[in-house]
């Protein structure tokens, strides 16, 4: 219990003190994970929607693989991206290993299946209701996918949020491809892992509290948007 009360004090001190070093870590965490969630959304939303409205051979297999990849361990995503970006790897020439760019790529790989799979499910459920009407109006599959993405935009926020939540909370992938370099690639989760191993439990827990607070705020915001949209558009 003592550690927790110390942690509460520590996180309050960290928050109130607005330590610039800490702010930089929090900012990088948000920057990397938001960028990853956005990249994964740009790719994953259309993929999920297309799978939802099209019927093609092997579709069931792709759905199963996509759903399974939602459980992709972050260290495995990190390892794959590490191998691609390392000196000897196919993308080694860009020299972005151990930079925030590499972390964004690793988290995008991690989060893409989550966003694509959840989008596929949402859009497929909506398509069941819309299919006859839209087909009657002469819609093409690509147009149907676009229409449904727009019509489900508020419920898809949850899919994007799930992706962001996964990204900001994971430590394995950013650790492997970022290297937890102080001032360069150190984010909240890698700091927590580091401080824990150094024995500074209050600081680690305090950071954890801030992380939770951020995620909580963001979720509340998205819920408020959804509520508003529900009342406005039905």
């Amino acid at each position: 219990m003592n550690t927790f009360s110390e942690a509460a004090l520590e996180s309050a001190r960290l928050l109130l003190g607005l330590d610039s070093h800490l702010l930089a870590i929090v900012a990088l965490s948000l920057e990397v994970s938001i960028a990853a969630a956005l990249c994964a959304s740009v790719i994953g939303l259309p993929i999920g929607a297309m799978i939802a409205v099209r019927r093609f051979p092997g579709r069931q297999f792709i759905v199963v693989v996509l759903n399974a990849l939602m459980g992709l361990p972050p260290v495995v995503a990190g390892l794959v991206v590490y191998l691609l970006l390392s000196r000897a790897g196919p993308l080694g020439g860009y020299g972005i290993l151990f930079t925030p760019a590499a972390m964004i790529i690793a988290q995008t790989v991690l989060v893409l299946p989550i966003i694509a799979a959840l989008t596929r499910q949402s859009i497929e459920d909506a398509w069941r209701d819309y299919e006859e009407q839209l087909k009657s109006l002469g819609v093409t599959p690509s147009r149907a996918a676009l229409t449904l993405l727009w019509d489900c935009r508020f419920s898809l926020l949850t899919a994007v949020l799930a992706g962001f939540g996964r990204a900001v909370a994971e430590v394995g992938a950013v650790m492997m491809v970022g290297g937890n370099i102080d001032g360069v690639t150190r984010v909240m989760t890698t700091t927590i892992a580091l401080e824990t191993s150094k024995g500074d439990l209050p600081l680690a827990l305090g950071l954890g509290a801030i992380l939770l607070l951020l995620v909580l705020t963001l979720n509340a915001l998205v819920l408020a948007i959804r509520d508003f949209a529900e009342r406005r558009y039905g």
């Binding site: 006859e132 009407q133 009657s136 109006l137 002469g138 819609v139 229409t147 039905g234």
Partner: peptide, 26 residues
């Protein structure tokens, strides 16, 4: 040809935009 269903399916947009959407598809 057009069809009206037992349960109308409307998109999450204004009444007017639901019609212009159909016109755009046509």
């Amino acid at each position: 040809q057009a069809m009206v269903f037992q349960r109308p399916v409307m998109l999450r947009r204004s009444a007017l935009r639901n019609i212009t959407y159909a016109l755009s598809l046509a």
